[in-house]
Every structure is written in C-alpha cells, then in structure tokens.
Nucleic acid binder design. Structure first.
Lengths: 217, 217
DNA sequence: CCTCCTACTTAGACTAGTATCAGTAGTGTG
DNA sequence: CACACTACTGATACTAGTCTAAGTAGGAGG
C-alpha cells in the first residue's frame, strides 16, 4: 500500500514505442478526441484517456498540442470540418428537388443521431463557433425557395419570402439535432412513448409538415 | 513559496458563523447550485464554488447532501420541480384557446431562454429523468386536439389524429428549448443574422406555422 | 443557566487530472 | 554510417477538486 497509489501513470508501461509522423499522430489523437466529444461531451475529452486509448503517453499529446486547450481548439476546427463534410455529403446525395426532402432529412438526422454529431454541434455552438460552417444549408434553402417562387408565379400568388425557406430549414435542423439530445424528455412531456418507431414517425411528420407549409399542393 | 500553495481553503477565513435551519440551508445551496447548472451546465456545479458563494465551507455542503452526487440528485429533483412549476404557471396564464398559442409560446420560450432552463432541460434529459415531468404538456395537447376535432366535425372533414397535436407541441418545445442552446449556429447555417429580432421573428414564424398546420382556416 | 443537538468550521487526506522536463529512440538525409 | 531531428517516454510537480474526521458554536428546551 502506498505505491500503487502512485496512480494510473504507473500501470502498464507502454508497449514498444511507435513513431508516427507528426501529422499522422495529430490526426489519430483528434479522431479519438472527437469520438469522446461526440459521445460524451467536451468534458470527456481527457488527454490521459485519449493517450492511453491510442497507446501513447499523455505527454505525447502535450507534445503535439501544447496543452489541453490547444487540443480543444484543434478539435473544434476538426469537428467543424467533419460536421461540414458530413453535411455536404448528405446534400450531395440529393436530387435538388424538394420531393427528395425526406431523404435529406433522414440523412441529416443520421448525422446528428447515429453518429453523435448532435452533441458536437451543440458544443461548437456554445463555443461561439461563428465563422466557419455558416451558410452550409444555403443550397437547400435556395432550392426550396426557387421552387416556391415558381409555384407562386404559376398560381399567380404573392411572391413568397426567402426567409420562410430559411426558417423552415433552420427548424428542421434544430429539431433534428435537438431530438437525440432532448427528444425523449419532450416526447414524454406530450405522453408519447420514447421508442425508435415514434422517433421515426415524428421525423416524418416534421418533414411532411414543413413541406406542406412551404409547398402547399 | 510552498505555503500559499496550501490552496483555496486557506484564503479568506469565513466571516462569522451563521446558523441556518437545515431546511433553509439546503434550499439556499440548491438555489445557488441550480443557478450554476442553468447557466453553465452540470460541471459548473462545484461544491467548493457553491459553498464559497454562500459564505460557508464546502464541508457544510457535504454535511447536508452527503456527497456531490447527493447534491446532484437533490438538484435534479429540485430542477425538475421548478421547471414543472414554471411551465405550469405559463400554462395557467392561458385562456385555453389555440389563438392564445403565441402567448404560450412566448412564455415557454422565456422559461427556456431567459431563465436558463434550456440547459437544465437538456441535463435532465441526459440524466434520463424519465418518471417525473412526463405529460406536463398534456393540457396543451388536449386543447389543441379538441379544437381540431370540433373544426373537423364542423367542416365534415376526417377525424384528425391526436398524435398530430402531440407532435406539434413536441416540436414547439424542442425548437424553443434548442434555440437558446444551438440557435445561433443554425441561424447562421441558413445565413440569417443572429440577433434578438431574428430570434423573435423565428419564434413567431414557428408558432404561426404550427398553428396553420393544425388549424387550417 | 445548563445541556444537548446539530449546523457548521478547520485541517488535511486523497484523487484525478494537467503540465513540464530531461532524456531516449526511431527515422530520414548527408 | 553517422548525424541531426523530433516523436515519444517516464518521472515528477502542481492544481483543483471531493470527501472525512474532529472539534466548535449557535440556539432551543428543560
């Protein structure tokens, strides 16, 4: 007694030293860090834990990022980038027609729910991550708005506001991102069961509703 | 050197000892804890910080709650209770007519945004706070659904599903709660400015949209 | 006034984490 | 091959936090 207490550091001397390129090492570290961030939030990003998981010492992480803060900042950039990449790949899958909105919504929902990006978006948002990632949903907004303009011209209705499309897309995102974070509570608050099926139905209802408002048939 | 290092405990010997009733003490502690939780999230709930802020020692907090975990559990009950109370008081302000929905939405939005309860709801949700607080929005759902039933009977339309009202209320809550947490990011993602005015317009748009879907005129 | 109860304090043990530093060992290059 | 460069280790310092133990003081009831 009194020497195992020397703590985590002592156990498991690291295996044989592996030398990565600085770039490779940074990416490995960031990937693991992002996983923790997405799954369990920013406070789960612990340099010791990350290091051990990779099989390096925590000092190595400090070597590459200077400090935990440095890691978090790099992580923020990295996370923002991968969120953007994911989002763009979903939008790329899209035929450009509002009729494909359900597919898009499902794709977005998958990003947020299954891949843990909801928490990540929350974190980025709270850190005031303003500059990057803005306007990412503009293509979606544009397509919807364009369709509305055509439809209105065709039916001789008043020219719709672009802001409607913006609000709708924002709502879609907000709801889809919030769903994995707080969905269960709010489903229960209206006495709905909290299961996969209800979630899916909710998502469909949301898209159908937004579409029917934007593009009344 | 080496003795100021004895840490925070040492600075500022506490003023004259104040003796509260156990109940009073617990309530004071919980109130401060809830403030930190609502403003800065669960990890901002630090017994030392709370104690110092009240002017007692951290050991006093342990005396009342046993452990930080104990405090968090009490806090969860307390937070859930006050969230419920707030919500109920907003619902009480309501004339029961769907036309008053904007007022209600504003009230709910105020709870979430201005009083920091969005984070609190998020925390409760993540802790899997299932049992309590469920069904809290049932009165709202009921009123909306009732109105829809009447309207449908009057116009000879098909009987509307109750689930629609539930989903709508859930969406309203989800969006209003998520707005203070991640609203700015998503507003920017559709290239909208992130200011008070836009937020307010967004909220109005949301309610108007949901109402127009539920109660087409 | 005495006495008991308990809310509270002070001191400090213990833990988990970040950060630093001197040295070690892969690796690419002349 | 030798050299320099740097990714990485191991030990250790330091900090911020939780929790405990022992004692202190305010207040209520006899």
């Amino acid at each position: 007694m009194g020497d195992t207490a020397t703590s985590a550091r002592t156990r498991n001397p690291l295996p044989h030293r592996v030398r990565r390129s600085a770039d490779q090492a940074r990416r490995t570290i960031l990937a693991v860090a992002e996983k923790h961030l997405a799954n369990d939030g920013p406070d789960a990003v612990r340099v010791q834990v990350i290091a051990r998981e990779i099989g390096i010492s925590d000092a190595a992480v400090h070597h590459h990022f200077g400090s935990r803060q440095g890691l978090l900042e790099a992580l923020m950039r990295h996370a923002a980038r991968s969120l953007r990449t994911e989002t763009e790949s979903v939008l790329a899958d899209w035929n450009g027609k509002p009729s494909g909105l359900h597919r898009i919504a499902d794709g977005i929902a998958t990003i947020y729910a299954d891949r843990g990006y909801a928490r990540l978006a929350l974190w980025l948002s709270q850190e005031g991550w303003e500059s990057r990632g803005s306007g990412i949903f503009q293509p979606l907004v544009d397509a919807v708005h364009r369709t509305r303009l055509e439809q209105a011209r065709h039916n001789g209705r008043v020219r719709p506001k672009r802001e409607d499309a913006q609000f709708a897309v924002a709502t879609l995102n907000l709801a889809l991102a919030a769903d994995p974070l707080m969905g269960s509570g709010f489903l229960r608050s209206v006495e709905l069961p909290d299961d996969r099926d209800t979630r899916a139905r909710f998502r469909r209802w949301l898209v159908r509703t937004l579409v029917s408002v934007l593009l009344p048939s």
